[in-house]
């Protein structure tokens, strides 16, 4: 219940109508959207029961490792009702052709693989919010100071997922495990996204806001 209540509001992409359609415009729109979502995701993290009890340093380490997984999982969940399209925002839905034009086809394909996996399972909102919190707590940062405290957070979230599945999906005792088994694909997809946006940053043709840049740099 607390995780459902902590879910951030929807964000609009608002592509700049003054810019002509181009790969730069698409990437500028996505980077701006990501930056605004990141601000919301940081305040979301603070509402995860137990997260704010971690040291500030460990909170930072978890977010620096998992920020892109959180963004990707949110896009994947939003895209569940869409056919082969990614719903980056209600006003920004991207098909393969548009992704290709923006140089994002590989990433688009990878995120859709994740969407299909969740669609097959009919991922529910309750499972999505819990899995997202698990991805954050389980981000495998190499800089964690209080490993036991982070383990405690992982255990509490894992327990919440098991409880939910026990009550709502007693017909499939392996459902929680199946959900956890999607996390490697999420990690892989997120790493792809970070690499791609790092190379866009190197090119220097797309304006990026400071928080997005700061977190991209944390992953280099």
């Amino acid at each position: 219940t607390l995780l459902l209540g902590a879910e951030p509001e929807k964000v609009c992409a608002m592509p700049d109508p003054a810019l002509p359609d181009s790969d730069i415009k698409a990437l500028t729109t996505l980077c701006d959207l990501a930056d605004r979502e990141l601000v919301l995701n940081i305040s979301w993290a603070k509402h995860i029961p137990g997260f704010s009890s971690l040291s500030l340093s460990d909170q930072m380490s978890l977010l620096q490792s998992a920020w892109m997984e959180i963004l990707v999982l949110r896009v994947a969940f939003r895209s569940l009702p869409c056919d082969d399209r990614l719903l980056f925002a209600d006003d920004y839905i991207m098909d393969a052709e548009q992704a290709k034009c923006a140089g994002l086809l590989e990433l688009h394909t990878a995120i859709l693989q994740l969407v299909r996996r969740y669609r097959c399972m009919s991922l529910e909102r309750e499972e999505f919010v819990t899995l997202k919190a698990i991805a954050l707590a389980n981000s495998d940062s190499m800089h964690i100071e209080d490993v036991e405290a982070v383990q405690g957070l992982q255990d509490a979230l894992h327990e919440a997922l098991l409880d939910y599945e026990c009550v709502h999906h007693s017909e499939d005792p392996r459902r929680a495990g199946k959900l956890i088994m999607t996390l490697p694909l999420l990690r892989q997809t997120s790493a792809k996204a970070v690499r791609h946006f790092c190379s866009i940053k190197q090119d220097g043709r797309v304006p990026m806001h400071k928080l997005f840049l700061e977190l991209l740099e944390a992953n280099i």
Partner: peptide, 15 residues
């Protein structure tokens, strides 16, 4: 970590 000023500030803000 000193470089991550915005993340640090956002985490320290209440809300």
């Amino acid at each position: 970590k000193e470089k991550h000023k915005i993340l640090h500030r956002l985490l320290q803000n209440s809300s």
